[in-house]
Amino acid sequence: MITYLEAIRLAQQKALATDSRVFLYGQDIGSFGGAFKATKNLSAEFPGRVLDAPLSEDAIVGMAIGAAIEGARPIVEMQFADFSTCGLNQIVNHAATLFYRTSVPCPIVVRLPSGGTSGGGPFHSQSLEAIYAHWPGLVVVTPATVEDAYTMLLEAVNIDDPVIFCEHKFLYYHLKADSLPETALPIGKARIARAGRDATIVTHGAMLHESLAAAQELLEDGYEIEVVDLRSVKPLDTDTILASVARTGRLLCVSEEWPWGGVTAEVLARISTEGFGLLDAAPMRINAKDTPVPYHPDLWAAHRPTASTIAAAARRLLHI
């Protein structure tokens, strides 16, 4: 069985093996194999191409940009998504502006181990896809399955634009697949993870699995919930969401991010303006609570949406 984390490691291994332009740069990723072991054994297998970086997120991203200008395809690891804010300037002001300003694309992949795990606390748990999606010039992806973690990382390396790869730490170990696919939906296309007719849940990342569990719970009440996995938040596949809402008439958007702005706000804005006539009820959304992500497992479990809070929201949406 291949875990989500192993899929990320295998994707990097394949990228290194098949594309001489690829190299990896990040903290502790060399012989140590990374804080989560996403680069385990790769430095031995690809000598000189899996490089430990100093504790310098700005320099890590800045170096990736210069290397990309020179034709390389760097994959950089931020040890936790939370620390990418120390490299924010290079990402949003340099990488993201380069193509528009100079016509020279900036093919870097910035891996962000994202999202909450029990005991992670305020600085090792953040979901930052929305802030990166806000800046023009970035592609922001949020794989929610083992298969997507693998194929989307390989696709990201081949995209000429900077890709923010939000891999979810909660899925690292317990999400497993028998094998890895050769083909996949392209980045930019959402996926119907579960078909239904009574309401649509739009979600991404670890919340996909909470939403699927909620949909299963509601099935016991006789409701069939359609679940859309966005896969990438930028580009955002509005067409697939609209088509689903056209079938169900009801929309609940679920995200582990904080509520202000964010993916749920964007999805609701789009569907309310473009698909107003498709809606049989006011669209709803649930996010994490608007506080830093708490440390204690009991607080953390209550901070983010879960299958039961999603199911409760879906019941309100369905007027049960």
């Binding site: 190299f23 300037n89 002001n93």
Partner: peptide, 12 residues
């Protein structure tokens, strides 16, 4: 910002 970028270019 250009310092690490030139460094990265040289690394490449």
């Amino acid at each position: 910002a250009m310092i690490p970028s030139v460094a990265g270019a040289l690394l490449a």
